[in-house]
Structure formats: structure tokens, C-alpha cells
Design a binder for these strands. Structure first.
Length: 563
RNA sequence: AGGGACGUCGCCAAGUUGGUUAAGGCACGGGGUUUUGAUCCCCGCAUUCGCAGGUUCGAGUCCUGCCGUCCCUGCCA
């Protein structure tokens, strides 16, 4: 596992840029921050940012702060703060300081006053529509506000009155005085303070004016002595403003903003707005629905933090926008779990199978390895008796040539046990196969001289009398199209995959699986990787399939069908 | 007067100041091992870097022009 070894970490432009700066003596160490707004849950796209920020700081001798960008109390909630803290911890990171933009409200207020006193900001008393109209368009310059030339004294008095609560929401704003004709619209006298009579999750009713993102973010970076403020591409246009403010304010440090491309995943939505809608409109069961790309969701689904960190490292960091196939995420989970997950036997869709030459009232215990390649993971004991369940899919009455599993008269190996032959098929009145009567070959038991006899297929099984009944939930992509947000005519919820969740309530597990605890994982052999779901009870376990195994047969079957 | 960015294999992505054979991963195809059609192991997979010109002994790397894609007109972040 070399992914955490910096020397083998993939080169990317931020890493090489920092390396150069360090060599040039511009910094001694790198201090970064992860700055979520607590208005929703973190998703896999945030993981990319978290991994980047923590990796750069750790690699270059510094640390990372967790900073909540809580400048808009209309949208932010304590429960989101709590969830975000849990998610970052779960991903495996410890932040140096837990900060809040709201910790700096007093300082930020002072900075705004500083601009006002120096004639670099003014109070505008026009309404939002008027300000918008005066901003101009993409191709035309804006025009100056009639209040642009208010004196510092006037502005100061007004700003103090704003803070004191003398005005209603929207009556005044503070604007930086930059350039209404700037080609970059962010420089056309951006709003830096607005009135919001709104309870704040942390500062309560201490304030009725709140700084805007642009005014709070860079200054918070400076206060925390952040060296590199890493953010996504859409903030590129804000950098001139970021720099302007740092330059004109008596801040204690000069952080630099560097932008990189956000993560896009196909067959998923990764915007907070859309995720919030899925949750609030009930398309999913909650923020931790296992079909969601939220950290809470994929955690419940069974993804490991290691697999997500590896994924984030593997996809790289660039400025070009890209879409990563969902399968890449899944493969990272497989790669992680293949090495670590103990193997178990479980049957999702049971078909009864009777071993006609096995004694009726007997049973035995077979010692099976927990991992085929790693003997250190030990063994466990699995009961075997005359009546078994096998996977319904593992039997086919009219099987194509390439079907290596059970068919009438055919032979197959029962995993870890012996070779059986299918002698008889029993059907119900509707023609549905309800039971297979087979005979086993005692010579082919593991350890016996005939054990190395080759048969094409090996299938999994479970002893009917000993198996534990369970519910198993299988997941598929939440959307049936690669880019659900791309259609301008149709809402993205129109593309929700109706088969994204399937519940199997009659699965049978080998007894040892019943003891699994939350956050444990295993492989159900030949089926995929599974974790217990918190919905399960001691007497009614529920399992989630995190990801299937690679399935060459499914691929073959598909190409057979398509000719 | 719009501004900012990005375009290297099906998907990601390296390509140090131009130096000669365009990393790597994934996907895909072929072969081997295998009591998971899993894993693992081999082998193959861009005469070409959005396009067109130019500079140069030499260009993915420099210059010019063009084309395509994304972002920006919240008192959101």
C-alpha cells in the first residue's frame, strides 16, 4: 500500500507548486483548511477536497483546520455541523483547530470599518433589484451607485447603526468600492455585509449583520495563517477580489487561493442543492441513504474510508473538468476489501437442495478458510447437513454450453465440501423448480484423495437447518442516465432509477454472519461485499451489498444475449 | 469590452526551463494459475498530443489564428 507514501504520490500541479515555493523559502510549512458551509451533508466531492487539504499539510509539515463557513444563518444548522465533524473523522482525519467564520465576526466587522474609514467601502441604501440592475451585464459595464461617494463618517455612522439593529433586512448593504466597469463582475463593488435579523446557530442573536462569503473567507484564511486556500474552479473569478481584500486590510498573513476541478461522478448528482432535494422530497430515505454519494450514505452502504481516500488519490488533481465513472469508486472498494474481508457463505435467493445419499439426522462441521490467499485470517466452522440451500441462479434447467453451474445430470462442487450431481428436479404445479435432489461423491471431500478432481463450477451453499434468515438490500445506481442534471427540459428526478434498491427478505446466511457488528464487513463468496445495516435487529439481521464482485459471467451472458 | 479557465488513448492522468523511443492507472482484448466465472500473474493496447499555420537542426512543450467545452450578471457558498 504505497498510496500514503508521499514519494509515490502522483504528481499534480498543486503539489509541485507547493514544493517549489518551499524550496524558494516562501513558507516553512503548509497550513490548509477544509471550509464546509454547514447547510447539508458532505459528499464524495468534498472527500476529494478533504483528502487534498489534509495530504498537502501533512506532506509539508503543517496541519489542517476544519472551518465552518457559517456566514449565512438562514441556511445553516447545528445538525449539519455535527454530521460534518463525524464525516471528516470517519474519513480518517484529525484537524488541528476547529474554527468557525463566526468566531471572527468581531474582527471582520473591524476590517469592514477599516475599509470604510479608508474610503474603500460604502453603505449602499438601494434595494437588491436596483443594485442588480446597476451591475451591468457580462458585456456592459455597470454604473455607480448614487451612494458611492458618501463620506467615511456617513458610512461609519450608517454601518454602526446597521450593527445596532436600526434597520430592517435589505435596507442597506456595505459594498467594497472597487470598479463598476471591471470586466470581472466580482469586482463591481461587491456586497461585503448585509442585514439579516436571524438567529445564528453559534452566535445566537448577537449579530443582525453578516459578512458575505467573499469578505469572510479570505480574511478567515489570513487570521488562521492558512498558507494555501484550496478551492474549486468556480472561485477562479473571485481570486482578484480575494487578493484585493487581503491587500487592503491589516490582516496578519497573506494566504493564496489555488483552484482545482471539482469531482464529477457519472450516474450520480453531486450538488448540495440536488442532494437536498432528493432528501427533502423523499426520493431517498435520508441523507444516509446507501444510494446517495454522501459520505454518510456510502458509509452505510459499506464503503471503507481507505477505499475513498485511495479513490481520491487515484483520480488526481487538475484544473480540467472530468467525469469519473462510478465503477472506479466501486473498484477501489473491491481492491480494499478483497485483501481484508473475511469470506462467508450466504444465499440470497434460496433453492432447496437435498443430498439423497447423506444420512438423514446427521450434520457435520466443515472448517473453511476465512480468506483464500491469507491463512493468517484463520478459519471458521460451517455446518453441513442433508438439506441445503443454493442460489437459484446457480441452477438452470436448459443451460447454455458455457454455463458452468448446476444443470440436470450435471456436476458441480459445493464450495469447501464435495462434488454433487443433480439427479432429479422437483417442480410445483406452476412449473417452478422448488427442489433439487442430488447425490454427493464422498471421495471428493476436501482432504480426500479425490478432492482434486476437476469440475467446471463451484457454487456456494448453506445448511437449511442451521442457516440464519436475513434481509439483504442490493443497490444499483440511483440514476439511469450518466448525467441526470444535463437535461434542460426535464428535472433530474425524472431520471431516478426505479430499480436502484431491491430488497430480498428471504436470504440465508451461514451462522457466523449473525454475529457481525456494525462497521464490520465480509465477502459473501461469489456475490460481493456486504455489511450489516443499522436497521437490523439481533433476531432480524439486515445486510447491505456494498459492491458486487467482478462478474465475467454476467458480461459473457450479456454478450451472448446481444449475439 | 466582456472576463476567467480548460482541451494528451474509451475514462482519468504524468509530461521539470523545446532535445530526440509520449509515464502510470482504469477499461478493453488475449493467455496462465485457481475448490469464489473472484483474486493473482503474463502479454497487447496513442508514429500521436483540439485544428491550422509558423519559429527551430529539433515542438505535446514557443508564437499566431481558429474550433470546442466549462464558469461568472445572489444582499448563496
Amino acid at each position: 500500500m504505497s498510496s500514503h507514501d508521499p514519494s509515490s504520490a502522483p504528481a499534480h500541479f498543486i503539489r509541485s507548486r507547493i514544493r517549489k515555493e518551499l524550496e524558494a523559502g516562501q513558507h516553512e510549512r503548509v497550513i490548509t483548511r477544509f471550509p464546509p458551509e454547514p447547510n447539508g451533508y458532505l459528499h464524495i466531492g468534498h472527500a476529494k477536497s478533504i483528502v487534498l487539504n489534509f495530504a498537502m499539510a501533512a506532506e509539508f509539515g503543517g496541519y489542517t483546520n476544519l472551518r465552518f463557513d457559517d456566514t449565512n444563518p438562514a441556511r445553516e444548522e447545528q445538525r449539519f455541523i455535527d454530521a460534518i465533524r463525524d464525516d471528516v473523522h470517519w474519513l480518517g482525519y484529525e484537524w488541528e483547530n476547529e474554527c468557525y467564520a463566526s468566531d471572527y465576526f468581531e474582527t471582520l466587522y473591524g476590517y469592514a470599518l477599516h475599509l470604510i474609514e479608508n474610503g474603500l467601502a460604502y453603505v449602499d441604501s438601494q434595494d437588491a433589484d436596483t443594485i442588480r440592475a446597476q451591475r451591468g451585464t457580462l458585456t456592459e459595464p455597470g454604473i455607480n451607485s448614487p451612494h458611492r461617494e458618501r463620506t467615511p463618517e456617513e458610512n461609519k455612522a450608517l454601518f454602526e447603526a446597521m450593527r445596532a439593529g436600526a434597520f430592517e433586512d435589505g435596507a442597506h448593504v456595505v459594498r467594497a468600492k472597487i470598479d463598476m466597469a471591471a470586466p470581472n463582475i466580482n469586482l463591481r463593488d461587491p456586497v461585503i455585509y448585509r442585514i439579516r435579523h436571524q438567529e445564528h446557530p453559534r452566535t445566537g442573536s448577537d449579530w443582525c449583520i453578516y459578512p458575505s462569503y467573499d469578505f469572510a473567507h479570505g480574511q478567515s484564511d489570513a487570521i488562521e495563517h492558512i498558507t494555501h486556500s484550496l478551492c474549486t474552479l468556480e472561485f477562479e473569478d473571485h481570486r482578484p477580489l480575494y487578493d484585493w481584500l487581503i491587500e487592503h486590510l491589516p490582516v496578519p498573513a497573506r494566504p493564496q487561493q489555488i483552484e482545482f476541478a471539482r469531482l464529477n461522478l457519472d450516474f450520480a448528482v453531486l450538488s448540495k442543492r440536488r442532494l437536498t432535494r432528493l432528501v427533502e422530497e423523499g426520493h431517498v430515505s435520508g441523507w444516509d441513504d446507501p444510494r446517495l454519494p454522501t459520505l454518510a450514505g456510502i458509509r452505510r452502504r459499506g464503503f471503507t474510508p481507505e477505499s475513498i481516500r485511495n479513490f481520491c488519490t487515484e483520480i488526481g488533481v487538475t484544473k480540467s473538468e472530468s467525469v469519473i465513472p462510478f465503477g472506479v469508486l466501486e473498484r477501489n472498494l473491491r481492491d480494499d476489501l478483497n485483501v481484508r474481508a473475511p469470506r462467508r457463505l450466504a444465499v440470497l435467493d434460496p433453492l432447496k437442495l437435498v443430498l439423497t445419499n447423506y444420512p438423514e439426522d446427521e450434520s457435520e462441521h466443515i472448517e473453511l478458510p476465512n480468506h483464500p490467499q491469507n491463512p493468517d485470517m484463520g478459519t471458521r466452522s460451517v455446518p453441513l447437513s442433508r438439506e441445503l440451500f443454493i442460489e437459484r441462479d446457480d441452477f438452470m434447467e436448459d443451460a447454455p454450453k458455457k454455463f458452468f453451474r448446476l444443470k440436470p445430470g450435471g456436476e458441480v462442487r459445493l464450495r469447501g465440501a464435495f462434488i454433487i450431481r443433480c439427479d432429479e428436479i422437483i417442480k410445483d404445479e406452476t412449473g417452478q423448480v422448488i427442489e433439487l435432489r442430488c447425490s454427493y461423491d464422498p471421495d471428493t471431500r476436501s482432504g480426500q484423495p479425490g478432492a482434486d478432481r476437476k469440475v467446471k463450477g463451484t457454487i456456494h451453499w448453506v445448511s437449511a437447518a442451521h442457516a440464519v434468515k436475513a434481509e439483504v438490500r442490493l443497490y444499483d445506481r440511483l440514476f439511469s442516465v450518466p448525467n441526470p442534471g444535463a437535461d434542460k427540459e426535464r428535472d433530474f428526478t425524472d431520471f431516478i432509477n426505479p430499480e436502484s434498491l431491491s430488497v430480498l427478505d428471504n436470504a440465508r446466511l451461514e451462522p457466523s454472519v449473525a454475529e457481525m457488528q456494525p462497521a464490520e464487513f465480509c465477502q459473501f463468496e461469489r456475490l460481493g461485499y456486504f455489511v450489516p445495516d443499522p436497521d437490523g435487529q439481533a433476531d432480524a439481521p439486515v445486510f447491505n451489498r456494498a459492491v458486487t464482485l467482478r462478474d465475467a459471467w454476467a458480461k459473457l451472458e450479456k454478450s451472448l444475449k446481444n449475439g
